[in-house]
């Protein structure tokens, strides 16, 4: 452990403070206290973020998607359609005898803004709105679980070290070495079978739970590994030693000294994780192991759109374009969040 004078400031701090080591300010009480309240590293990050155009735009888009998901029942009321009713079969003149929408562009009309689903005849807009809701909800729940579990295990491994670290690290290595997508496909039915016998139809909640469990099982390793590394380097810092010298226990050191310095990586990983889980969930539904009919689902819509692509591109276009926009915006947002929180890393 070399104790070289390390003149690099901590992450989050601007390198040079306003007050230089002039004899006057050193002598102390001098220097007029014009602005006494200091800016926290978090406030500085927020200022940087607000100046970042692409960050603000992508944040707006992401917020827009979340609003849609959140306000889906309200949209349903205002729009007057629901995602389940088979309008094409109830109202004549919407679908022809082979089940294709009669109106051009997939049946877009004043009644059905995004058209109607081929054959089944459900409203596309409502399906998309509720599909986004399902996918985002699942992804958010997974991100929360993964972040909490990963943070706890990562910090514990890094701070306690020794055998605890060894065990957690080996588990992480093992999970990371597995082809996770393959396991999702293989495991989801197994997890489901644990709860329901094959004959019964699986309730939606159970399907969602199974998906969340399987995704979380593999997901926590990313954040845990990153935090473990961070804590390993932080636990030698002198402010941790200062806390120990003052008599602080492990709990206090973890929550009061370490955790406040870890929000940056936690937030960065969580913002990068969320779109990953949206696409993973979509991919699983696309492959048929995710959410099933009639629950509206973003990924399954895309799957269905692909099947009928030749006859009706519109049904594929809306969910696919929406997802591209969402994932793109979220990834740009992730970059902006990282730049704002960790200004030194953006090169």
């Amino acid at each position: 452990m070399t104790m070289q004078p390390q003149l690099v400031p901590e992450a989050g701090g601007s390198p040079n403070p306003g007050t230089p080591d002039s004899p006057l300010s050193e002598a102390g009480v001098a220097a007029a206290p014009q602005e006494v309240v200091g800016r926290s590293p978090g406030q500085l990050a927020w200022r940087r973020f607000r100046k970042d155009r692409s960050g603000v735009i992508s944040a707006s888009i992401v917020i827009f998607f979340f609003l849609i998901a959140f306000a889906a029942p309200l949209i349903e009321k205002l729009y007057g359609k629901d995602p389940y009713t088979r309008y094409g079969q109830i109202h004549p003149g919407l679908l022809n005898e082979v089940g294709a929408p009669i109106a051009p562009n997939g049946g877009i009309s004043g009644e059905h803004w995004f058209g109607i689903e081929p054959a089944v005849g459900r409203d596309v807009l409502m399906q998309l709105v509720y599909g986004i809701r399902t996918s985002l909800l699942l992804a958010v729940v997974v991100v929360i679980i993964v972040t909490v579990v990963g943070t706890i295990l990562g910090i514990t491994a890094g701070y306690l070290g020794g055998k605890v670290d060894y065990v957690i690290s080996r588990v992480i290595d093992t999970l990371l070495a597995m082809p996770s997508q393959l396991f999702f496909i293989a495991f989801t039915p197994i997890v489901l079978a644990l709860f329901v016998s094959e004959r019964e139809t699986t309730p939606t909640m159970l399907r969602a739970t199974a998906l969340i469990i399987v995704l979380s099982l593999f997901g926590w390793t990313r954040i845990a590994r990153i935090l473990r590394g961070q804590v390993l380097s932080m636990r030698e810092r002198e402010y941790i030693e200062a806390a120990k010298v003052s008599g602080a226990g492990s709990g206090r050191i973890i929550f009061k000294e370490l955790l406040p310095n870890l929000w940056t990586p936690i937030l960065i990983v969580a913002t990068l994780d969320l779109p990953t889980y949206v696409t993973t969930e979509a991919a699983l539904s696309f492959l048929g192991v995710g959410m099933t009919e009639p629950t509206p689902d973003w990924g399954r819509m895309i799957n269905k759109g692909f099947e009928g692509m030749q006859s009706d591109v519109t049904y594929l276009a809306f969910p696919a374009i929406a997802m591209v926009i969402f994932v793109l915006a979220f990834n740009l947002l992730g970059d902006s969040v990282r730049d704002a929180l960790d200004p030194k890393s953006n090169r």
Partner: peptide
Amino acid sequence: QMIFQDPYSSLNPR
């Protein structure tokens, strides 16, 4: 009590 060498790593930046 202790006083440390490095004024940058001895204070929690947060």
